[in-house]
Nucleic acid binder design. Structure first.
Lengths: 127, 127
DNA sequence: CTCGCCCCTCACATGAACGTCAGGTTTCAC
DNA sequence: GTGAAACCTGACGTTCATGTGAGGGGCGAG
């Protein structure tokens, strides 16, 4: 499969895919004229990369972690790295939960007492 | 208190505080020569801003939300905005939890079977 | 062979949240 | 009143993950 198809199937832009390759996160075979060809596995790979990006990891960190995830590199260092990142994520989850609680409190206040708000407005009213 | 002290007390850089003001997130009185003077309340304000930044909100979004949080602006629109952001945060928490689970699985694999790893290495070995 | 669509490689642009340097002013302790 | 520390306003630099052309080549259908 060529790059456009992979882009479509993963919902990631062509540019982003080239960028992933540039960063060493994704590899592709090249056919005669230099066009990239991907295996089906690339789809999962891209989804994993996206997941880690969404978790706030940098491409550099992802590059370090990928060998641990798929090639099963397994050294004390790699385990420490994995745990470190997981802990980072945990801390971030905690922070997010605090922020959410803060917003929840504000929301409760605004919806609660003396708010002239008996209805529950579940969507943004078209402005 | 002047900007340097506020920076020290909040752990945020002077530059960042000026940036917050530039973005309309933080206001300061000016003394004769143009220097910023902050009330003690500014400390909490900055901490709130940091919390929201940490939750991944943009300065623009924070700017929109702050009036709801502290000036108690309370309109259907503001409530919808608050809920929208809280939901965004919730979704991000979910994504992070998925990423964490993924890492947990990898960690379990690497520490578990046939790993020559009977000890539990809780820290990064000084490299 | 040629049209059209997809692909290629530069390489500059973007936006967010600051860092950093330059050149100048204010404040405050002494 | 004076010198150093802290502050001021620009304004350009940085990093990251892309967006966005420009200019040119690959490749299957007819």
């Amino acid at each position: 499969m060529r790059i456009g198809e992979l882009a479509t199937k993963t919902g990631v832009s062509v540019r982003a895919l080239r960028y992933y390759e540039e960063q060493g996160l994704l590899t592709a075979a090249r056919s005669g004229g230099g066009q990239r060809h991907y295996l089906d596995e690339a789809i999962d790979r891209v989804r994993l990369i996206q997941m880690l990006y969404a978790a706030g990891l940098s491409s550099r960190t992802i590059l370090d972690l990928l060998p641990c995830v798929d090639a099963k590199v397994n050294t004390p260092q790699s385990r420490a790295m994995l745990r470190a990142e997981r802990d980072r994520i945990e801390r971030q989850i905690t922070q997010l939960q605090q922020a959410r609680e803060r917003l929840d409190r504000v929301i409760a206040l605004s919806e609660g007492p003396a708010s002239g708000c008996a209805y529950t407005d579940t969507g943004t009213p078209d402005s």
